[in-house]
Write a protein that binds this DNA or RNA. Structure first.
Length: 116
RNA sequence: AUGGCAGGGCGAUCUGUCGCGGCGUCUUUUGGCGCUGAGGAAAGUCCGCACAGGACAGGGCACCCGUCUGCGGAAAGCGCAGCAGGGAGUAAUCUUUGGCAAGGCGUAACAGAAAACAACCGCCGGAAGGCAAGGGUGAAAACGCGGGGUAAGAGCCCACGACUGUUUGCAGCGAUGCAAUCAGGGUACGCCACACGGGCCUGCAAGACCAAAUAUACCGGCAGCUAAGGGCUGCCCGCUCUUUGCCGGGGGGUAGGUUGCGAAGAUAAAUGACAGAUUCAAAAACAGAAAGCGGCUUACGGCCCUGCCAUUUUU
RNA sequence: GGAGAGGUGGGUGAGUGGCUGAAACCACCGGUUUGCUAAACCGACGUACGGGUCAUUCCGUACCACGAGUUCGAAUCUCGUCCUCUCCG
């Protein structure tokens, strides 16, 4: 199973991100809020991770959550097929453990792949 | 032993599986291999430097900042060691203030006779007038105490003492200390003046370079030229320019990229996840580089080392 | 990342180091007026702790974001911390 997360599988650039935020469909699952956009091609899916500064003032805590979310996605990204652009936004005001993030990520990915 | 004071240090290490940024290298298709990858505060942005752009002939004034002494330092609201005054503590020790002037100006609420010029009550005196001892309020009241002196009094005079300064000697690089000597009498705070030192303004989102798409200054070519206007002429023809379209060049410049940029170093931004071992147990505190460097300040669980003080006990 | 401005009752917002717990306006509360309401007018109106009282009233102390300092005395001056807002692509 491919469990890497190279740079090509991360969404970057002002245009692509603002298009995703503007036109993407969204949903909530546990501690995560997501927005996604189905692309036409079959290139690997690309993701963005976001933790709002409003909830966590300290950069250490934001970094920790972003790393946990990325790790949880990396472990289970084969649930989601190729061709998606997704942004994950952490919405809880308190720190979640890795196991909680992992469980919520599982249900988000299943929901996304089920919709297609 | 208990409690305390000061100074210094550490801020986990190792193994396995998966994974990330950078560099090198091999194949160059995926990738493989090697090296390397957050802090003592990376934080706050409080000082300073370097660097960059703008302004600027040179110098001065003004304005702003700093101010005990010596040493270090590129500099600093910087560090170390010391000096003097005040405060806290039984002590070790800690903390705070600090150019200069018997200079000028201002302010001193309430209370109080009066807040520094004096006046009032009062004291003396027949009066003219003299005096500043007494007035108990205040944060602060014109040096303290004793004697002399006087009509009453006063550093008016004298002795002793405190304070401020001059000169000399000794000690110290110096701030200053000690001793002698002479002079003085206005309490606190602020501003001004003076002395010495420093200071242009803006900041890496500074600045430099490359440069799609779209529009386009300008240049060239082609088409259109039946059209309109201008020029060559007094008029016509003709030639030519502009207006229109297309193609090519082209400068500035946007998205974007490169650089600025580093023995960590990106451009949505890398250090993580899980399992185990170690120090009794728990990896637990504060906290994450976005241009660099020197400081300051603030946050911080736990542990280690050195010196010192107080109390109690034993020898 | 860098540069700047601010924080005072429930809200807005003045405030020379000294009668400022604090101006003024709005809101809230009570009253006058009215058949009822609005408007107008009058009054009252912060919090905490302590004291006293049967109780309302009353008295004292502290608080101008928070903590130190200067001063006889700080909302005001100085330093630090926290928070909010604005500008720079």
């Amino acid at each position: 199973m491919d469990a890497t997360l190279p740079k090509t599988e991360r969404l970057s650039g002002t245009k692509a991100v603002s298009e995703l935020f503007g036109r993407g469909k969204s949903g909530v699952c546990g501690c995560l809020r997501y927005k996604y956009l189905r692309r036409a091609d079959d290139a690997p899916s690309r993701i963005v991770v976001s933790v709002p500064k409003r909830s966590f003032k300290r950069a250490v805590k934001r970094n920790l959550l972003k790393r946990r979310i990325r790790e949880a996605y990396r472990r289970q990204k084969d649930i989601l097929g190729p061709g998606f652009d997704v942004v994950f936004i952490y919405i809880l005001p308190s720190l979640a453990t890795y196991d909680e993030v992992f469980a919520d990520m599982t249900s988000v990915l299943k929901e996304l792949s089920g919709n297609e």
